[in-house]
Design a protein around this nucleic acid. Structure first.
Lengths: 207, 207
DNA sequence: ACCTGAACACCGTTCAAGT
DNA sequence: ACCTGAACACCGTTCAAGT
């Protein structure tokens, strides 16, 4: 059983599918070769080695990140809409962030959202270093939040029997607070509220 | 050359040192055995396997996390001081966060700071779900920020020749903004400003 | 230009055998 | 109770040999 000749494109395609489904750790050269129906060593001819294969994969995924169109009336609302859109883009590619960071492409990944943010922050009347600060703060906030969210999702059981631990200090006298903290957070709402607060706070700060 | 009999304690100690210096990926059972001067298989008798060795390491590090004492005058300042202290604790254990998350111990790691935060948020006059939201938002903010910071530090070159990419849109007419964004951010100051803005925004939100 | 299998140096883990 | 080496199934990568 022979197969049509292998191409770099096909290697990337198949590797990408494996990463999307099972994460980068599950991408072994041998499994990839099996999937492709070739000898392991053929892959090396096309993509060099595992590391540069992943590099190429990340490159391509980053390029895929769509342009971001803000919407909303107030400057704050428009900035929040950019954050929300960025979060969605990142969550659609669950393995991207970590891979991007490991390769030093964080700034590059930030770009589409950054341009939109710069525009909106400018519209909000901020200039220079103050404007840059807002842009950066929002970027860090979004990426950080998505990272924590993803970690929490992958995590098993979470909070092993820590209900008891809550019965301390002020939480005792505020059962609604204790209950709220015992429940797992709703990341979507938490994200919206946090970004909103961050942006409000930043725009209110002295310049 | 024989050695005094191995103990679980000694295995954890040595493994911990290796992880602190070179990260969890560098901890191989064989290197650890070499370090300890025993056969690889001896380790298995004491700690089961690599995974439970790492579990134990994380357990112990989480327990090490110190209590957090807020300071400052205003409620906002005190909450920010908790965030800052938590950030410091986490940065002192650079490999902890990822390992904690992978093991579903996020909530546990949050605990010391959480208790302090609950107390301060209560003092600020918040109750119930609104208080919980502030606590969670600050926790996510801190952990997320530290994660992004760490990724950036480990990253190589960062922003490969993207100065040009900046010469677009509004940045063109605001050279101070363009310059500020071209420079790598100062994470310490960015963190302080972000947390401050977040807390201000949260405390100002309608309840 | 492209593909191959053999071989090397590394992993984590199991197991029967030692004391 | 504790330690050992041999062995197994996996890695990524190199290389000489094929077409």
């Amino acid at each position: 059983m022979t197969r049509t000749s292998l191409s770099r494109e096909e290697v990337l395609e198949t590797a990408g599918a494996l990463v999307r489904q099972h994460g980068p750790a599950a991408l072994t050269m041998r499994k990839l070769a099996a999937e492709l129906g070739t000898a392991v060593t053929s892959i090396y001819w096309h993509v060099g080695n595992r590391e540069s294969l992943l590099d190429a994969l990340v490159e391509r995924t980053v390029r895929e990140l769509g342009e971001i169109r803000p919407h909303g009336r107030t400057p704050a609302a428009r900035i929040v809409s950019v954050a929300t859109a960025l979060r969605r883009e990142l969550r659609e590619r669950p393995h991207l962030i970590a891979m991007v960071h490991e390769r030093g492409l964080t700034e590059r990944m930030f770009l589409p959202a950054q341009q939109a943010l710069v525009h909106e922050v400018h519209r909000a009347g901020l200039r220079g270093a103050a404007a840059a600060r807002v842009v950066r703060a929002v970027q860090f906030q979004v990426v950080g939040h998505v990272l924590v969210e993803r970690y929490r999702e992958r995590a098993p059981a979470q909070h092993p029997g820590e209900d008891e631990l809550w019965h301390t200090a002020p939480a005792e006298h505020d059962p609604a607070l204790a209950r709220a903290l015992a429940r797992p957070p709703d990341p979507e709402r938490l994200f919206a509220a946090s970004v909103r607060a961050l942006v409000d706070g930043l725009l209110a700060q002295p310049r």
